[in-house]
Design a protein around this nucleic acid. Structure first.
Length: 230
DNA sequence: GCGACAG
DNA sequence: ATCTTGTCGC
């Protein structure tokens, strides 16, 4: 089963302590070219009923070349940390790590529903998780947290840089003609160019790339009782 | 001081 | 994120 580095505890953390942890961890994040050509990619996501702390987390691994699903795992867990813009990782990563533990495959790269460096302190969920998983990760979000950008051309593949202060923190990428862009940013052990390339490679004809889309369907089915957890 | 604010 | 029907546009 896949493992990870227990860099720090996730329980009994206050929002203030969470910010301090991010400041401490950010220096360990590495934005660089991929060291190995990836063959598989994993998508991660969670689902939950409003006002309830039970969360349904899942991970789907697919073949990058064929987009075939190789493996999928789902777990029913609990999230105590609230949703706070900028601190999403503290709410979602714990349950995602539980799912990760049940994985037999060792994904070459992991995609997150959220941001990596396109974060006020440059450590969004994709970057934070990348440090724990110790492998290439990146974020592909549906909306912006921070960063300004010029509208990219309407054709699929067009993109424009997202700027936060003086940094290029990500890219607004068009994954489908004349459809709102998605926001891509590197998490750890990868660079923006490759994150963009992989996002486009995970095309399934929808705005949302396949890893995230399939995982979203998986965790929703789990929440509705249409599927069983592992 | 006043808004904005991943999922 | 989740709750939800119809409806505008290509």
């Amino acid at each position: 089963m896949a493992d990870y580095l227990p860099l720090h505890d996730w329980t009994n953390i206050t929002p203030t302590e969470a910010v301090a942890l991010q400041q401490q961890l950010r220096s360990q994040i590495q934005i660089q070219p991929l060291s190995q050509p990836p063959r598989t990619i994993a998508g991660c996501d969670i689902s939950f009923n409003k006002f309830e702390e039970t969360v349904y987390a899942g991970i789907v691994v697919l073949n990058l070349k064929t987009m075939e699903t190789i493996e999928e795992v789902g777990v029913i867990s609990s999230a105590t940390f609230p949703y706070v813009p900028g601190l999403l990782s503290f709410r979602e990563i714990p349950s995602l790590l539980e799912a990760w533990t049940k994985l037999r495959a060792e994904p070459d790269v992991v995609m997150f529903d959220g941001h990596g460096t396109a974060h006020p302190r440059r450590i969004g969920i994709a970057s934070h998780a990348g440090l724990f998983l110790n492998r290439p990760t990146f974020g592909c979000g549906k909306s912006v947290l921070v960063g300004k950008y010029e509208e990219p051309a309407p054709e699929r593949g067009a993109w424009s840089p997202m700027l936060h202060y003086r940094d290029v923190v990500g890219a607004a990428l068009r994954t489908k003609n004349k459809v709102n862009p998605v926001y891509v940013s590197p998490g750890h052990l990868i660079d923006l160019e490759m994150a963009i390339s992989l996002t486009l490679q995970c095309d399934g004809g929808y705005r949302i790339p396949e890893p995230t889309r399939r995982t979203h369907n998986l965790v929703n089915a789990l929440r509705r009782g249409e599927r069983k957890a592992d």
